[in-house]
C-alpha cells in the first residue's frame, strides 16, 4: 500500500476544491497539492502556501543585469578600447544609461522566468498525477486535490473516507507512483 503516490479527489467546482483544501489543512494534512485549469488565489490561501520567492530572484537578476550592462560599457569604453568620440569623456556615464537600463530588464525578466521554472521543478517529463485518467480534465474544467502518501497522517482508508466526505467531490482515485 505504501507504493501509492497518494489519493486524489476530483471536483467540478472551484469553490468545492478550495473548501476541501482548507478542510484538509484543518485536519492536519500538509503533504498535498491542488490542481486547477487556471490560477485561483483562494487556493494558495487555503493551502497556506508561503510567499513566492520569484520576486527576490527577479530583483537579484535585475541588479546583476544593471552591474553587468554598465560594467561591460565601462570596461570596453574606458579600459579595453578607449575611443575619443568628439572629445567626449571615455566614461560617458549619461550615454551608458540606456543600454544598462535594457540589460537590467533583460536579466530581471529571464531571472523571473527561469526562477519560476526552477522553483516549480519544470521541465518535468514524468509525474504520478498523470496516471489518473480523469486528470486530463485538470487542464480543461476539473479541479483536483491530492493528499500524498508521504504525509504522516496519510492512511489509505481514513484519507479516502475523509476525501469522499468533502462536499462537491465527484470521485476519489488512487494515484499510482
Amino acid at each position: 500500500m505504501s507504493a501509492l503516490y497518494g489519493l486524489m479527489a476530483e471536483f467540478d467546482d472551484p469553490k468545492a476544491v478550495v473548501e476541501a483544501a482548507e478542510a484538509a489543512r484543518m485536519a492536519g494534512y500538509r503533504k498535498m497539492d491542488a490542481y486547477s485549469p487556471y490560477p485561483i488565489e483562494a487556493l494558495s490561501e487555503a493551502l497556506a502556501l508561503p510567499k513566492s520567492h520569484v520576486a527576490k530572484i527577479c530583483l537579484a537578476g535585475g541588479i546583476f543585469g544593471l552591474a553587468a550592462g554598465y560594467g561591460l560599457q565601462y570596461w570596453s569604453s574606458v579600459i579595453e578600447y578607449p575611443m575619443n568620440i568628439g572629445g567626449r569623456p571615455f566614461h560617458s556615464w549619461v550615454a551608458f544609461i540606456p543600454p544598462a537600463y535594457e540589460t537590467t530588464i533583460l536579466f530581471a525578466a529571464f531571472s523571473a522566468v527561469l526562477g519560476m521554472l526552477a522553483l516549480n521543478g519544470l521541465p518535468q517529463p514524468y509525474h504520478p498525477v498523470f496516471n489518473v485518467p480523469a486528470f486530463a480534465g485538470a487542464s480543461r474544467d476539473k479541479f483536483f486535490l491530492c493528499i500524498e502518501a508521504e504525509d504522516p497522517l496519510f492512511d489509505v482508508e481514513k484519507t479516502r473516507a475523509f476525501l469522499a466526505a468533502q462536499p462537491g467531490v465527484a470521485a476519489v482515485e488512487e494515484v499510482q507512483p
Binding site: S44, L49, C58, M116, L122, P123, F135
Partner: peptide, 23 residues
Amino acid sequence: MGWRGSARHWHNYESAYLLLAGL
C-alpha cells in the same frame, strides 16, 4: 514542460507573470 496546474506552480507562475508585465 510537464505543466500540471498545481496550485504551488500557479502560485509562482502568477508572481512571475505579474513581474514580467511590470518589466
